[in-house]
Amino acid sequence: MENKVLATVNGIDITDEILDTTIQSLAPERRGYFESEYGRKQLLDQLISVELINAFGTEIGLDNDPQFMSQVEQALKDIKYSFTMNKILSTITIEEDEAKEVYAAHPERYQGQESIKASHILVDDEEIAKGLISKIESSELTFEDAAKEYSSCPSSEQGGDLGEFGRGMMVKEFEDAAFAMEVGEMTKEPVKTQFGYHVIKTTDKKGNEPLGFEEVKSEVMNKMLQDKQMEYYTKLITELQEKFPVTYNK
């Protein structure tokens, strides 16, 4: 495919290839817009503006400005470092079999988050809450019916069901009571929080048992890759210090 020259600014060509490379360097969410005909034209105008300003910078003697040249030198060092590191680290990989061995040796390191499912009845009076507990325990009311009739929480429409949640997602008093109970157990006394008085029933529990390998494969492999890269980097720096002279000035 011909690398068409789209514009020339002060003797510098802006080609299709330059425009394509610039588009590919953009974030994915912006790239689609500039791939359109209108977007490409807009980006070309921006590149022309950059070259015009650069030409003016040369005209006013910026190429001989010490501060400018110092920043150019530092930028080149940064780019060279980045490209060198990418080239070095791209050679380091982790195989899935290696990750499986690490996981098998310490599956307890990869635990799921403890969570529960619970329902509640929220009222603003402690005596009402105690009365509801008594009626539910005596089977005069089901927990769900009591929630629908008496609870001031929007969850009343679902029989008080709050769904699944982990630690840190509810106020402390509520969380402590809900996590302390076994599945199917209800609080013997109302639990007071800033919102009122709760009658709580824990309906399901998920422990923090080890997760399966497939669930944590990415986590295991990423951690192993980071460790392996750091190990190689540390070793390389030591070797390079012996190869290239380093002098500390006091």
Rank of each mutant, 00 (worst) to 15 (best):
D145G: 01
S138C: 03
E73D: 14
D78C: 05
Y150P: 00
R109T: 02
E95K: 15
E157K: 13
I48D: 04
V72A: 06
T58L: 13
K87S: 15
K77G: 05
V102F: 11
N54R: 15
S115T: 08
A104S: 14
E126D: 15
T142Q: 00
K117Y: 03
D65I: 08
E108P: 08
H120G: 00
G61E: 09
E96M: 03
A99M: 08
Q67W: 14
N86K: 11
V72C: 01
G131E: 02
E98Q: 12
E140F: 05
P154E: 03
I94W: 01
G57H: 11
H120Y: 03
D161T: 07
G159N: 02
D63A: 04
T58C: 00
D65Q: 07
E73T: 15
I116C: 00
I121L: 01
Q158K: 12
F83Y: 15
Q111I: 13
A147N: 05
S49N: 14
L76V: 11
S70R: 09
T84A: 14
I92Q: 01
G57F: 12
D65L: 07
L76A: 10
E98S: 09
S151T: 07
M85T: 10
P107G: 03
K130S: 02
E114T: 10
F83K: 15
I48Y: 06
I128N: 01
